[in-house]
Computed example of a mutant assay.
Amino acid sequence: MRLAALLIATGLLAACASQPFDPAADIPPDAVPTTRTEANGDVITEYRVAGQLRVVRVEPSRGPAYYLYDRDGDGLPDKEGDNPPQTYFKLFEWN
């Protein structure tokens, strides 16, 4: 019984590891990127479709990059507490 539970748990973990999360995959293929560098070294890339903001990628000078999405189409990044949450971090990547 313990062996079966261990095998199931191992299989579930392997399935999770084989499905990498890529926040950049949600960027529309026809989006036009515009990049700027802030005074503190942060790199901000805005992705727009037909002039409307869709995704903002923030690459801080320290720490992991994160993405802000506009899923409701109002031209502003979604508010905190929205479902799904507005900010996505890519902490690890396997090659």
Rank of each mutant, 00 (worst) to 15 (best):
R2N: 15
Y66V: 01
T37L: 08
D30F: 09
M1L: 11
R2W: 11
P60H: 05
S61P: 01
R54N: 01
P29W: 03
E59C: 09
Y66Q: 04
E46H: 09
A39E: 10
G51F: 07
K79H: 12
F21S: 00
P84I: 08
K79E: 11
F21A: 10
A4C: 10
A14Q: 14
T10I: 15
N83I: 15
T10W: 14
A4H: 11
L53P: 03
A39N: 08
A4R: 15
T45F: 03
D22W: 10
T35D: 01
R54P: 01
Y66A: 03
T37Y: 07
G81V: 04
R36A: 07
P60A: 04
P64I: 04
T37R: 13
A24D: 09
G11Y: 08
D72G: 08
A5T: 11
G63S: 05
L6Y: 11
A31Y: 03
L7G: 12
P77C: 05
S61K: 10
G11F: 11
P33G: 04
P84Q: 07
N83K: 15
D70G: 10
E59F: 00
L12W: 13
A50M: 08
P64R: 10
V55H: 01
T34Y: 09
P23L: 02
G63W: 07
D82C: 09
L53N: 04
V56P: 00
F92Q: 08
P23K: 05
P64E: 11
A25L: 08
R48E: 05
K79L: 14
V49C: 02
A4S: 12
R57S: 01
G51A: 05
Q19V: 11
D82E: 15
A15R: 13
R57V: 02
I27C: 04
E38N: 10
K79Y: 15
I8C: 14
G73M: 07
L91I: 14
F89Q: 06
Y47Q: 02
N83P: 00
L91D: 06
V43Y: 03
P64Q: 10
T37H: 04
Y47G: 00
Y47T: 01
L53K: 05
I44H: 02
Y88H: 14
D22E: 15
Y69F: 14
N95K: 11
K79G: 14
G75Y: 13
V58W: 00
D74H: 09
T10K: 01
T10E: 02
M1Y: 14
F21V: 11
P60T: 01
G11P: 06
Q52Y: 03
E80P: 05
L53Q: 06
D74R: 13
K79M: 08
Q19L: 14
V56A: 04
L68H: 03
T37K: 11
F92L: 11
V55K: 00
V43T: 06
L7D: 07
Q86M: 08
A15E: 12
V56F: 04
Y67C: 02
Y69K: 00
V32L: 09
A24M: 05
L3E: 13
I27K: 02
V58L: 01
R57P: 02
G75R: 06
L76F: 11
D70A: 07
N40E: 09
W94L: 15
L91R: 14
D42P: 00
A65P: 03
R71L: 06
E59G: 03
